[in-house]
Design a protein around this nucleic acid. Structure first.
Length: 183
DNA sequence: TGCACGATGAAC
DNA sequence: TTCATCGTGCAC
């Protein structure tokens, strides 16, 4: 297992999103190493992307998105669930990749398909916002055994308010993977 | 200081 | 289809 370097995240967001598929999200907490394989993601392309939080500009909440790549952007949605993103591209670009579903690999209990459920299973909450993903307790690795799969591209979920941006196929998932939140 | 509104999930 | 639940951002 090789931890993804900063340079992996400092690239085109839609590309990073697709390359995150099949990678393992690792979280070491409470004496337990939890691992999930990323099977579904969405790309958010910076300030001009009306579906992205950063479209509102630099605010207290979105400043993590405007920060350096390779950090976690975690926020509370609907007052109930947490969503986990990976910041991409250079500092100030305000782009990120939302992790929407993972397949359990190690020490994961309960469902993991959906951004909120994924965070619950991985014990991710707002305390991890702005956390560096090159740390030793929260990071993403390239698995030793690479697998082959096809990538399906679809419009993002729950962003109908974003005009023409809602139609762009910036949601990516592993074809036929049973842990994808919605086919 | 108040209030409308979600990058969701679960129940009905 | 409806609702829970609360932090954020912006209007007064």
């Amino acid at each position: 297992m090789t931890k993804l370097p900063r340079s992996f995240y400092n690239r085109d967001t839609a590309l990073v999103a697709q390359e995150l598929l099949g990678k393992w999200l690792v979280r070491d907490a409470d004496g337990l190493k939890r691992i999930g394989k990323i099977v579904e993601v969405e790309a958010y392309l910076g300030e001009h992307d009306l579906a992205a939080h950063s479209a509102k500009g630099l605010t207290e909440r979105t400043k993590t998105m405007f920060g350096p790549p390779g950090h976690a952007y975690v926020y509370l949605i609907y007052g109930v669930h947490h969503c986990m993103n990976v910041v991409t591209e250079g500092e100030g670009h305000a782009s990120a990749v939302l992790l929407r579903a993972i397949e359990p690999v190690q020490n994961l209990a309960g469902r993991t398909c959906g951004p909120g459920l994924l965070c619950r299973a991985m014990k991710i909450d707002r305390r991890l916002n702005a956390h560096d993903l090159l740390s030793d307790v929260f990071f993403i690795v390239e698995p030793d055994v690479a697998e082959k799969f096809s990538i399906v591209k679809r419009p993002r979920i729950g962003v109908d308010y974003a005009g023409h941006w809602a139609k762009r196929r910036l949601r990516f998932y592993i074809k036929d993977n049973p842990f994808v939140s919605r086919p």
